[in-house]
Computed example of a mutant assay.
Amino acid sequence: MNENQNKDAVLVAYLTILGTVIAIFMNNEEKKTEFASFHIRQALGIFLSFFLLGYFVGYADSWTVSSAFYLFYFILWIYGFSGALSGQKRLIPVVGAFFQTTFKSL
C-alpha cells in the first residue's frame, strides 16, 4: 500500500484531539498504513502531553510561563504537521520516540 494513500487521516489527526480519534478510525485495518499510524501516534502524543502538562502550567499563574508553554507546543505541532504535509516521517524532537513506543498499538 502506498504510504500517502491515507494522507487524509494524517491531516485530520493534527487538527484537534477529536481529529486524532477520528483519524484512528480512518486508519482501520483495511486501509492501515505505517505512515498514517506514525503521524497519528505523534499527534496523539502532542495533544495528550499538552493537556497533561498544561494542567500543571496553569498553576504557575504566570503569563510568561503560559506563553512559553503555548509557543513550545505550537512549534511541536507545526513540526509534526509540516512533516505530514511533506510526506515525511520525522520524529518530534525530544519526545517523538517516546510517543512511538508508548502508542505502538495504534
Score class of each variant (00 low, 15 high):
Asn6Tyr: 01
Tyr79Cys: 09
Glu30His: 00
Tyr70Trp: 14
Trp63Glu: 03
Pro93His: 00
Phe98Gln: 01
Phe99Asn: 04
Ile22Trp: 04
Gln88Gly: 08
Ala9Cys: 10
Met1Tyr: 00
Ala68Thr: 06
Leu71Phe: 06
Lys7Val: 08
Leu48Phe: 12
Ala23Ile: 00
Leu15Cys: 14
Phe74Asn: 08
Leu53Tyr: 02
Thr33Ser: 07
Leu76Thr: 05
Ala9Asn: 06
Val12Gln: 07
Asn2Met: 07
Gln42Ile: 12
Thr20Trp: 10
Arg41Ala: 15
Gln88Asp: 12
Tyr59Val: 06
Leu11Val: 10
Gln100Gly: 04
Phe69Asp: 12
Ser66Val: 10
Leu15Tyr: 13
Gly87Glu: 06
Tyr55Asp: 08
Phe72Ala: 15
Asp8Tyr: 09
Asn27Arg: 01
Phe51Ser: 09
Leu18Glu: 05
Gly58Cys: 05
Ala36Gln: 07
Gln5Arg: 14
Gly83Phe: 10
Ser105Leu: 03
Arg90Thr: 09
Phe38Trp: 06
Phe35Met: 11
Met26Asp: 01
Leu52Pro: 01
Tyr55Leu: 13
Val94Gln: 00
Tyr73Phe: 15
Gly45His: 05
Ser105Val: 02
Asn2Pro: 15
Ala60Gly: 07
Gln88Thr: 13
Leu53Val: 05
Asn28Thr: 00
Ile92His: 01
Tyr79Ala: 13
Asn2Glu: 11
Ala97Met: 02
Lys31His: 00
Arg90His: 14
Gly45Thr: 07
Glu34His: 01
Phe99Leu: 02
Gly96His: 03
Ala43Val: 11
Phe47Lys: 03
Phe25Cys: 02
Gly45Gln: 02
Ile92Gln: 03
Ala9Phe: 10
Gly80Trp: 09
Leu15Ile: 15
Asn27Met: 03
Gln100Asn: 08
Gly83Asn: 13
Tyr14Val: 14
Lys89Gln: 12
Met1Asp: 10
Arg90Ala: 03
